[in-house]
Design a protein around this nucleic acid. Structure first.
Lengths: 145, 145
DNA sequence: ATAAAAAAGGATAAAAAAGTCTTAAAATGA
DNA sequence: TCATTTTAAGACTTTTTTATCCTTTTTTAT
């Protein structure tokens, strides 16, 4: 809808990781993908990239896997989204006009602004950990049961 | 941003068509594309499709071209958007969950809802003709001058 | 040391979106 | 009727997104 496939997979993966490693453990990409219904190799790429960008953490070898530090878990979701998708969603004219700004605003400029602002607001005030705690309450499912 | 390239081109094209044919004339795809900075053949496809779906009108032959009837000009922009892009933007879970609804809502479900609703509202209450009248006032440009 | 487990990296493939080109059909006017 | 203008249709190419596979590196445990 708003995000790329890779970004969707990443958010779901993070929710799962946080819940599986509440006790400080790590979890492998195979297990993650099975549980969030995401393609394995593709999602692995995205997670590796997020790890490189310090949005999540990873450790190789037996007993290794992906996890989030306390600090990372308390960062807003928008960080992850921007790391994966960049900020095309958050900027640029809705009609694709080369020249659209306050000085010469497209006819939907001021209508789109609050929509975008609201999206930024939601993603900025929601922390990774918040997503995970909703999941732990069992109110929704990461895969069809 | 929210729309596909084809959809952006189509909106821009409609604005231009409405303004060029205020007096009931028609305008060719070549002239349209030159003036809204859109790829010609690709945009032609989109416009032809919109014509088939009765969102806009067209007539072949010399003196022919694209135009909108009074009725078409007064339809909301959301009709055009749905004709080109379908309604994926307006529905589906933001996290791509197979199972996301009021009964088991994803952690961003209620946060995304007003955003989407607002998008639908704006596109429903803005008529094609509204976009064009903003353009005729010269407050924005369809191509870099 | 060696085997096994895991992420990391690179090359490749498939699918979808975006864009081009060529020909056909329709309409018009001479 | 014939040439011209314009949309319509279809096949094709390119680019981007999504996805897979294979190899390498790191780490751990035996």
């Amino acid at each position: 809808m708003f995000f790329s496939k890779g970004c969707e997979y990443a958010i779901r993966a993070v929710i799962y990781i946080l819940n599986e490693t509440a006790k400080g453990g790590r979890i492998g990409v195979k297990s993650i993908c099975k549980n969030v219904e995401a393609p394995e190799s593709f999602t692995a790429k995205v997670l590796q990239d997020l790890s490189r960008r310090k949005v999540i953490s990873s450790i190789k070898g037996p007993g290794g896997g992906f996890f989030l530090t306390e600090d990372q878990a308390n960062k807003p979701v928008i960080n992850l989204v921007k790391a994966v998708d960049g900020d095309q969603i958050f900027q640029g004219c809705g009609l694709g006009l080369a020249q659209c700004n306050e000085a010469s605003p497209c006819p939907l400029h001021y209508e789109f602004k609050p929509i975008r602002d609201q999206l930024v607001k939601v993603l900025s005030q929601t922390k990774m950990a918040d997503l995970a705690s909703a999941y732990s309450k069992g109110t929704f499912f990461l895969k069809v049961e």
